[in-house]
Every structure is written in structure tokens, then in C-alpha cells.
Design a binder for these strands. Structure first.
Lengths: 173, 173
DNA sequence: TATTGTTATACTCTATAACTATA
DNA sequence: TATAGTTATAGAGTATAACAATA
């Protein structure tokens, strides 16, 4: 029940504070994608927070676990992070004795990344949290919904990749 | 063809630079969601760039168009932007004579937002670009894919909303 | 000459606290 | 007392340029 008055000059009459319409925005895939991704990511950050891990750190642990001896620049490229910004990320995990950098024999400019025992243990705990997170999402999607969503997202990826500033890129989740 | 040597001490033997495996990461919805959203968003930013508009600015124009006289705080809340960070956003559009702020009669603390003719014209052009962008995405999703994706994303939203730092939030696309 | 890792730097986005004027 | 808008500020994340060591 907002009181209505005449608007004069730069002054405005009332507007029902009721509901705000998204207008055409509500019908766009990109808009929905961004809104949902933001919320999902916030949930994931909160879950990983219990282990004092950030998404990019967790992703790096997974990546090194899946590719032992991965070069630093390869890891950066795979996660879509500039090599300059990658330095601090790797060093923080190194200081926590989660992973190790070893100079490569073949190319002494580069480092090879390897998980340390502590990194493997933390990764196991983080993956358990990630699995719980994923289960929450899957529960919302209904039977087969998770697989159908992944399929559709991969179709999208095939077309939009290499549109990002760095060419074919990834995200630091 | 990487040469293989024995690793000794902190030195590492070679690793085929071939392909980097994502490992378990590749199977998570959140990971796919983030990667694809990042790429789609970059494409959208590039499209809007032709009009010297950023996503958040465009969204605000759409929102005010759909809700004339919207209060500043309502717009900020609907777009998931802190009111403090919203000030600069509104002012930039005001300086470009795209929208106008009018003091509300009923509550003289607040501003009501209205599009100006220039804002309506720019919005029309931006919406055309957005529609092209959306068509590119829809083309990748196949017949009915767009609608199925929107449906799945909305199911996700229903569960994850209000997990974000600000409670029930939106994103500034 | 080109590449890997590094430093420094800047720009954007975001989050919070404190103030003002109004309510 | 509480709220709308504002200011100031600090923290992330990200992008580029330049350098040393190595190829």
C-alpha cells in the first residue's frame, strides 16, 4: 500500500516495493548460467573452507594428482590462470608441504609438480567434501538430471571455447 | 619425444607435454558450470563491448526498463551488488544520460530510477547484441537444448539460492 | 630468439565499516 | 532506532610488461 502522489519535476511518485521483475533477462541462458554458477560456487567455497582450501588450490591438487610431474606452466594453462599469478598459488601449497616443485632434468627452466603425502591426505578430504557438494546438486536435478546437464554444458563448451581472452581457457575452480 | 632420465634428489625426469588430464574434476557439475560460464561471459562481454557497455550496466538498463521507478537499493539487491558498489554504477549511466535518478516523494531518502531516451535507444541495441549472443548459444545446444538447459539450471537455482554470502542473491550479468 | 618462472604493477570486482539525511 | 545512499578502504582475482636463467 504505497501512497500515490503526483510526480513533479525530478521527484518521483511511489512504486510498489513488491516484486522486482527481471524482464527479458530471466529468459537468457547466459544470465541463468551466471546466477546459478555464482551461487553454486559460493556453496563450494564454503564447503572447502573447512579445510582452509580455496577452489583454485583444490583444483591444482586434483590436477597434479591426475598428472604427476606436471610442469608449472602446464598446470597454469590447464586451470586458466596466468603464469604470473600462478606463482603465489603454487608457493602457498608448497609452504604447507602439500606439494613439491622439482627442477626438470630435461628443461632446467621448468618445475615439475608432485603431491606430497600431506597433499594426498588433504586432497582425499577435499574430494569427499566435493562429492557431498556434488550430491546436493544432483539431488536438486532429479533422476538423470545431472547427466543431462553435463551433456548440455559440454555442448556449450564446444562452441564457446577459445572466445576467452586467453584463447582456449579453463576456469580456476 | 621427451628424453627420459633418472630422477635424483629434487630433480625430475621428463613428462610428456601431450595432454593434461583433468582427472575427477572433469566429472563435476560445478566445475563444468564454472568453466562454461566463464567462457560464455567472456563472449558476452566482447559483444557488449561494441556499445561501451559492461554486463552489469546492461543488466541495470534491462531491470529499470522492466521496473520503471525502481528504487536504487532494490536494483542493487536484484542484481546482487552491494549498495556501496552500486553507487558508481548508477552514476556512470547517469553521466551518460542513459538513466535518471529522481528523489522519491514518499521516502526522501531513496532514489527512483528511470530510463532516459538515450538509455532506451542503447538498451535496444544492446538487447539485439544479446539476442545474437543467445542465438549462438542456442545453436550449439541443438533442438530444444536451450529450453532443457534453462529448466535444469532453474532446478539447481531452487536449491542453492540463499547459500551465497548475501543470502538469496543474483549475479551482475 | 623464444620460453619458464618471477617480480612489480594496475585494474576490476567485491566486502565492510562509518557517516548523512531521512524515516 | 532503522534505512537509503554515500564514502573510504581493503581484499581478492586478473592482466600486462619486464627481467634472469635457460633453451
Amino acid at each position: 500500500m504505497a501512497s500515490k502522489r503526483r510526480s513533479r519535476g525530478r521527484v518521483d511518485r511511489d512504486r510498489d516495493a513488491a516484486e522486482v521483475s527481471l524482464g527479458p533477462l530471466g529468459g537468457y541462458v547466459g544470465f541463468a548460467l551466471r546466477r546459478i554458477q555464482t551461487a553454486v560456487f559460493a556453496d563450494f567455497i564454503a564447503a572447502l573452507g573447512k579445510l582452509d582450501l580455496k577452489p583454485a588450490q583444490y583444483s591444482l591438487l586434483e590436477l597434479v594428482d591426475a598428472n604427476p610431474g606436471l610442469r608449472q606452466w602446464q598446470a597454469a594453462a590447464a586451470l586458466g590462470i596466468q603464469k604470473a599469478n600462478f606463482v603465489g598459488l603454487v608457493r602457498k601449497l608448497e609452504r604447507r608441504s602439500l606439494l613439491q616443485r622439482r627442477r626438470s632434468v630435461a628443461d632446467r627452466r621448468s618445475y615439475a609438480l608432485h603431491l606430497l603425502p600431506g597433499g594426498r591426505r588433504l586432497l582425499a578430504a577435499a574430494r569427499a567434501l566435493h562429492d557431498e557438494h556434488e550430491s546436493r546438486l544432483a539431488g536438486r536435478l532429479g533422476s538423470g538430471g545431472r547427466e543431462r546437464l553435463l551433456l548440455l554444458l559440454r555442448r556449450l563448451a564446444a562452441g564457446v571455447e577459445s572466445a576467452a581472452p586467453g584463447g582456449g581457457r579453463a576456469a580456476s575452480l
